[in-house]
Design a protein around this nucleic acid. Structure first.
Lengths: 209, 209
DNA sequence: TGTATTTAATACAGAACTGTATCCTACTCC
DNA sequence: GGAGTAGGATACAGTTCTGTATTAAATACA
């Protein structure tokens, strides 16, 4: 109907292979790491040959960047979708924050692997660091706004800046997840967060003047 | 004098090149990651050619294992040396624990990179996971004993198992260090730990009956 | 001092990976 | 339905890496 209609099939094909390549890369990076995965590995996983790859990306580095962007975009979208519910609806402050941290990562293990890989990459490459920090900042700001909204509506004040508190929650979450994945039997997912973070929240909470 | 005297020079030469190769590997792994570092890179850094490498190690994997063992041994030795002082001497419980975490890692950045690399490796390889968990367990047990000693002598009881508390401290420490390294300006090293962990300790401390 | 042994350098063969150039196929559009 | 184009496969050249086999040097030992 619309002129775009006629153009779609061709464009859709292209963006579909891009998507499949990105999805394949995600899997292979999680399994073998960034350096351990060859372009060939990625293509094979996606069901293509390297012809398709180099027709869509200039290099593995470029794909990594695209993958990071795609992941970031999806993540921030999800947050935007979840925020209103969490801010208004039922549970406590911590439930809201922790569920946001969890629900944005359907597969904890894969997400952690990819995330750790990116972080390591960023610690070595200033450009990657800037991109990662930009993403983390936006993520953190969303969480901070969430915390501020909930404390306000519940008549509570924090004795530290909300962002500082969010940083602490993130630190605990990441450190605890690492332990849970290394020793699934010893450290059930979420146990450290749910044991100790309420104590922290309690310690920094005061009823509003 | 002793018969060992006569044997030393030859053995010393060999173990010296092993040590230099291990030291070179540590640097190169920190810079480019485990997969990103070639055997050649490591040899070059250590001032050898691959001949020396393959005369001392069967493969890069074998060297990684040896490096992990050497690092672990050194770490546990250091702990043994530090524990008595920390347990008896001056400051608070948290100062003792945190200083143990810090002083065992002279170069925070390099240590974090290597540590993260090993962890990532362990999350993919069950054998590496077992080795890493064994080391982490011993490290954690040392910290737990330290906590137990200090609480006892100070007439305090914890409302959670000491090990659980130690796990929390480790989680915060690792998560916070990651943030500090990514954003040195925004998160000074140790700031999150020193802001929030005292609150946690306070919350789980009770005077002994 | 001379011989044997150990250690590391050098030379080499093979494998894996990358990136490009070319070809084929399936759409698009007239 | 036929020419033109875009997407992806195939083939190839060049590089890098690994691991081994051989050689040279240093050390031990007599």
């Amino acid at each position: 109907m619309e002129p775009t209609r006629r153009l779609e099939p061709a464009k859709r094909r292209r963006s579909n292979t891009r998507a499949r390549l990105l999805a394949g890369a995600l899997e292979v990076f999680a399994e073998r790491g960034f350096h351990g995965a060859s372009v060939e590995d990625i293509c094979e996983r996606a069901g293509f040959t390297r012809g398709a790859f180099y027709s869509n990306f200039g290099s593995k580095d470029e794909l990594v960047l695209a993958l990071f962007q795609a992941t970031t975009d999806r993540l921030l979208e999800q947050i935007e979708a979840l925020l209103p519910d969490l801010a208004s609806q039922p549970g406590t402050l911590l439930d809201a924050v922790l569920s946001l941290l969890d629900e944005t990562a359907p597969d904890q293990r894969q997400w952690h692997l990819i995330s750790a890989e990116f972080t390591l990459h960023a610690l070595r490459d200033p450009d990657a660091a800037e991109a990662l920090n930009k993403q983390r900042t936006m993520f953190r700001e969303s969480l901070t706004r969430l915390v501020e909204q909930i404390t306000e509506t519940s008549g509570t004040t924090l004795t530290v800046p909300a962002e500082q508190f969010v940083r602490m929650v993130i630190a605990v979450h990441e450190g605890a997840r690492s332990q849970s994945l290394l020793e699934p039997g010893e450290v059930p997912a979420g146990s450290l967060e749910h044991t100790f973070l309420p104590m922290v929240l309690e310690a920094v909470s005061r009823p509003s003047r």
